[in-house]
Simulated scan of single mutants.
Amino acid sequence: MGKLAFVFAGQGAQAVGMGKELAENFPIADKTFDEASEALGFDIKDMIWNGDSETLMITENTQPTIVTMSVAALRVLQEKGIKPDVVAGLSLGEYTAHIASGSMEFADGVRLVKKRGKYMQEEVPVGKGAMAAIIALSAEDVIACCEEASKVGICSPANFNCPGQIVVSGEVAAVDKCCELAKEKGAKRALKLPVSAPFHCAMLIGAGEKLAKELENVEVKDMQIPVITNVTADYVSSKEDIKPLLIKQVSSSVKWEETIRRMIADGVDTFVEVGPGKALSGFIKKVSRDVKVFNVEDMASLEKTLEGLNA
């Protein structure tokens, strides 16, 4: 019998109206949005369901709204009796993974990611940092391009998403240089991303330090479900490691492809992407064609997932 993994989306998956269908059909999902509103001190339902995409794109809004919607979908699956053997999340999604594992309370997590978004946004003035996706180039070549571009300014790999898709992050001139070098090395594309800050690079160390102070007020408990962290692509060994890893994660590369490979090596043959969007499902399929991949973001995807898991 193979193992089941839940994986949770990161920033960029947000969409106006996300989670509304689940909330209309499941009281537990609706209650999740109310709990988040109470924890944050504003009406998160109104922001997500009646707001606009520009408001949702502001990092300190994006992060708590995605975590809330993901937890709403998670609770529906839990209510259906579905429990994963292991969990992980891409960047922001790692907080949802900890909530799923029982190591962090939902109210604490949602407040924390709002602050995390604020600190990440404030750390680098708009226009100073950039990110770019390098398509169809090996990890070794992308790392080499970053090293060369670092002569111009900060530039490093931010996300190892899947084979042939690596995101780089840093100062604008250095990221531009990296894109130029990547194309020379044969990258199919080097696309600048529409982001408001250069995530997962050394420019965000200060944001991690501010986050550390917030984490002092949060109680973490033992994980009931194993969590694999972005920083090492390995299991978080104890609750004492949770906070240091979350602090480090802000300015470290996200080793997502390695995380998926680790899960597969440990017997995971079925993945469920819980929360908005299907980006992670796409990454997983590029890592392996031999695993089953489902997602849960609305009624249709929920029904398809439940059918697939019970087959």
Results as ranks from 00 to 15, higher is better:
161 N>H: 10
140 E>M: 07
152 V>A: 14
153 G>N: 11
104 M>S: 05
105 E>R: 14
116 R>Y: 05
116 R>T: 04
98 H>F: 13
131 M>Q: 05
96 T>F: 08
159 N>A: 04
137 L>G: 04
99 I>Y: 07
99 I>D: 10
114 K>E: 08
129 G>P: 12
123 E>C: 13
162 C>A: 15
121 Q>S: 14
147 E>L: 11
123 E>Q: 14
162 C>H: 10
137 L>E: 04
111 R>W: 03
146 C>S: 08
152 V>F: 11
120 M>Q: 06
160 F>E: 11
140 E>C: 07
161 N>P: 01
136 A>M: 13
157 P>M: 06
125 P>I: 02
106 F>V: 03
113 V>Q: 04
98 H>Y: 14
130 A>F: 01
148 E>I: 03
160 F>K: 08
113 V>N: 03
148 E>K: 15
120 M>E: 05
99 I>W: 07
132 A>D: 05
95 Y>E: 02
163 P>K: 02
150 S>E: 14
138 S>A: 10
126 V>F: 13
143 I>A: 12
148 E>N: 12
101 S>H: 09
139 A>P: 00
117 G>I: 06
101 S>I: 00
114 K>P: 01
151 K>Y: 10
142 V>H: 02
128 K>C: 07
122 E>C: 09
154 I>N: 11
131 M>C: 10
138 S>T: 15
96 T>V: 15
125 P>V: 03
110 V>N: 04
134 I>K: 01
99 I>S: 07
129 G>K: 01
128 K>I: 03
129 G>A: 09
118 K>N: 09
96 T>W: 09
124 V>P: 10
101 S>P: 03
98 H>A: 03
102 G>R: 12
99 I>L: 04
106 F>N: 01
96 T>I: 12
154 I>D: 10
99 I>T: 10
118 K>V: 00
154 I>G: 04
149 A>T: 14
132 A>R: 03
159 N>T: 04
103 S>Y: 00
119 Y>T: 00
155 C>S: 09
139 A>E: 15
95 Y>D: 02
125 P>C: 01
102 G>W: 02
142 V>E: 04
114 K>W: 01
108 D>E: 11
159 N>K: 08
96 T>E: 02
138 S>I: 09
105 E>A: 15
119 Y>S: 01
128 K>R: 14
157 P>N: 08
97 A>T: 12
127 G>S: 11
121 Q>W: 02
154 I>P: 07
139 A>N: 13
132 A>L: 07
138 S>G: 10
100 A>T: 08
108 D>K: 05
97 A>V: 11
145 C>M: 11
144 A>R: 13
108 D>T: 11
105 E>S: 13
133 A>M: 07
107 A>T: 13
134 I>E: 00
97 A>W: 01
106 F>W: 09
107 A>N: 14
99 I>Q: 08
121 Q>M: 08
153 G>R: 10
